[in-house]
Design a protein around this nucleic acid. Structure first.
Lengths: 148, 148
DNA sequence: CCAATTTACATGCAAATGCATTAAATTCAA
DNA sequence: TTGAATTTAATGCATTTGCATGTAAATTGG
């Protein structure tokens, strides 16, 4: 009874994905810690909120943008608010929820993180791939991330 | 004052890596949970021990193979031993440590997990890439994982 | 040989995560 | 309408992770 398993190349790609992610992420997170900066999740949330501007985002929108579990997003926001980097505003047309917006401190911290994050990405990824390799890697990975 | 940041393609590859990893891993782990199977880390450890056979591995060897933090490996092993899937043997020539070997139950569980894991890999990766795409993805990712 | 250092592994405690559930507001359907 | 179902978000509790440190054995170097 065969079970339609993946071929060698697929398994190799899967394993390579897991290893590359761990290696690169480990390097980047290590640099952030050395600089006494918050973890990457903070950056991602702040950046989403910065991109969207003054209008802010509902928690569930941020949850979808970041692919976070609901409870993880809830607690991440709690920490960001406590740290003064994000502001919770009451939501006019839906009183269950609120709107999240980045604060001035949040903008400053986001920029400070990027100062360390950007060179870390360059070291972990950029320095290892040519320009067109990076493009084709991104394209292949997008196929895996696409929701069909 | 410029800071030698990554170019667009590099950042895109980095983001794609993180998203692809999360999406694929989420799918796979979800399937394992639905089947009431232990998390992937268990599989990885069991598989390393199965591959190496009767001789077993020292914890620090498993740690390097899996890219685990030392304390995480220590606790993973603790759980595997408690579950009866791995056996700790005293180590003749180094009495600080021990040798880890997979048990009969461990072999059985490893195989059961693979029964779910394999089709999950196929769905998350194999079904989305052609054979040569999988090969070139693995090659590109390996460049990122390689220790220089 | 022996003191100092390094290596191997474990563990206490704090923080983060996962899971299940709750509460409250909104939407839908009869 | 109004009652049922859904959506939004928070939270209690157990498990897992991270960090720092501890302990013991091995290695090094003087």
């Amino acid at each position: 009874m065969l079970m339609n398993g993946p071929d060698k190349a697929t398994v190799a790609a899967w394993i390579a994905l897991a290893r590359a992610y761990r290696v690169a992420m480990q390097k980047v997170e290590t640099r952030l810690k050395e600089a006494d900066l918050p973890p990457l999740a903070w950056y991602d949330a702040l950046w989403e909120l910065e991109k969207v501007g003054e209008g802010g985002l509902r928690p569930f929108e941020l949850e979808h943008a970041l692919l976070f579990e609901q409870y993880n997003l809830s607690r991440l926001v709690e920490r960001l608010v406590k740290a003064g980097l994000v502001e919770r505003r009451p939501c006019a047309d839906d009183r269950r929820g609120h709107v999240l917006a980045i604060t001035a401190d949040g903008l400053a911290v986001r920029a400070r993180i990027w100062g360390v994050y950007a060179p870390a990405i360059e070291a972990a990824v950029g320095a290892r791939l040519g320009r067109d390799e990076a493009v084709s890697l991104a394209r292949l990975l997008a196929r895996i991330a696409d929701n069909d």
